[in-house]
Every structure is written in structure tokens, then in C-alpha cells.
Design a protein around this nucleic acid. Structure first.
Lengths: 133, 133
DNA sequence: GCGAACATACGACATATGTAGTTTGAGCCC
DNA sequence: GGGCTCAAACTACATATGTCGTATGTTCGC
């Protein structure tokens, strides 16, 4: 125990988190500019999703000279872990580790992150089959 | 064009579809009995989700002696294709084919289904980068 | 033939999500 | 120093989802 039980990320939320994970600390506008134009989001939409992420405790808001910048609280491995497990167990119905392996060639994850992802997915498995029965 | 643009499947819906894909044609009760008890669903919940699946055109309802049996319209490969693409492109950010490969060792999919899944995922990719611009 | 049991068809309701708009305040250009 | 421009903070609203409950009709054992 110890690892915060982070909430799930919806599609729109994951989209923004990916930008934040890559950018570190960005203002709403900076995040918005990196959203694929095809999505055609209004800036207010970006702000709303950002706010919800803060409300969920996934992002932290810091005011710099009256301008808010958003900082990830949930790390990328933490954000991916749940999605990986869900996909592995419910959709693909294969061992989660096999899905984790997919991320190996995914340049966005550093070796350290990859390892953390593997660990988190493993831990989640243990939790799933609780030993407190 | 040609392949019906099936709607997405929510978690609960996927749960039921998996049972139907394995069972063929089942009554609401039969489906309900196969739902993992841990989920603790009420029979009415099962019926509701089943109804929504019919409304979405994913299942077909047939009345046999006044008892409804539900028959899959959307095949397993069709149901998985979208989920696979979503996970591959948005979450793992790897080639969809790599994710399809995961299903190779998944006994639930026959070789034919596996091939269809691969084909559907491939087609979806092409659609994504439409050539009609 | 009657009532217990089960099935069907609907209605309901809270929360989650996608997607904005509006109101108000601060900062900067001329 | 009056606006124009933006950011922040709220509010809004439709649809999707998870989860049932209820009113009715049908069946079968006794």
C-alpha cells in the first residue's frame, strides 16, 4: 500500500496528460496549442478538462504571476498502469506483462518509466487477487 | 466502405458481449448467470445493458416461445478492432499490428478471427488517413 | 383455475464526459 | 486612462454509462 489510488483518465483527459507529461509545467494556453488541431477544441474546453484533472488530484495548479501553470501529480507510468491492466485483462485477455512489453519500443517512455510501469502493473495484479480473504 | 460502423462498447457492454460471443444465442438469464458474481449485478442491470446493445445494433433479439434470446450481430473481431486501435494509437503509441499480435496466444480467438481482427485494424488505419481529401 | 415465479418492457436517477459559453478582473498598447 | 486581450472562475447542458425499480404479462405446478 502507499501508491495513491489515482482515478481513471478519460480520452480527453489522457490527451492532455500526455502533453503535460511531455511538457512538465504548462499554462492552459500552452497545453491548448499542443492539442491536435483536428480535434478542434475550444480553449474553454481545454480549461475545463484541465480543471477536472486538478479536481481529481491528477494535476496540481500553481499560480505564477497570476497565471496558472499545471503540473502533473500523477506520473506517466501511474497514468498508464491502469489502462494497461484494463486492456490486458478485459480486452486482450493476456498477461499484463505482455502488454507492458509493448512499451519497450515506445520512445516516449524512459527505461526508468518503463520499469515503474511494469512494477505498478504487477502490484495492481496482486491487489486484484487480494490475500486478505 | 462496407464494414458497418459499429458503435463503441463500454466496459459493461464488453463484458456481456464476451459472454455472447462465446455462447452464441443466450437468454438474458443465461447471460446473467455467466457474469462474474463479484460484479454483483442485479438481473435488471443485465437486461438493461442487453437492451442497449440491441438498440445500438450490436445484438439482435429473437423471440423463441416468448423468451428472448440475444444474438451477436457485431462479431468478436469487429468488437475488438476499435478497442485495439484506440489502445495502440492513443495509449501505447505503437503500431496497431503490434497489439494485434498479442491476441495470437489468446485461445479465445480462432485463427480466422485473428486474421479478421488484423484486417479490420488495418482498414481502420487507412480510413484514418483518408485518401479522399 | 390460482398464485408463485419468471420474463418483458419501460422508467428512473446519479455520475461521468464531451464541449462550451459568460462574467469578471488584470495587463498592456496608444 | 480607456479599451482590447487574455486568463480565471463559474455555469451550463446533452449524451453516455452504471445500476436499478416497477408495472404487466405469461407459465406451470398443484
Amino acid at each position: 500500500m502507499g501508491s495513491h489510488r489515482f482515478p481513471e483518465l478519460s480520452r480527453a483527459e489522457l490527451e492532455l496528460m500526455k502533453i503535460l507529461w511531455a511538457g512538465g509545467r504548462l499554462s492552459a494556453r500552452e497545453v491548448h496549442e499542443q492539442i491536435p488541431a483536428e480535434l478542434g477544441w475550444a480553449i474553454t474546453t481545454t480549461r475545463t478538462v484541465l480543471d477536472r484533472l486538478v479536481a481529481k488530484g491528477v494535476l496540481r495548479r500553481e499560480s505564477i504571476h497570476k497565471i496558472n501553470v499545471f503540473i502533473p501529480v500523477m506520473t506517466r507510468p501511474q497514468g498508464l498502469a491502469r489502462l494497461v491492466r484494463e486492456f490486458a485483462t478485459r480486452v486482450a485477455e493476456v498477461e499484463p506483462a505482455a502488454v507492458v512489453a509493448l512499451f519497450a519500443r515506445q520512445s516516449r517512455l524512459s527505461p526508468a518509466e518503463l520499469e515503474e510501469l511494469a512494477k505498478l502493473v504487477r502490484e495492481a495484479s496482486e491487489e486484484g487477487s487480494e490475500g486478505h480473504a
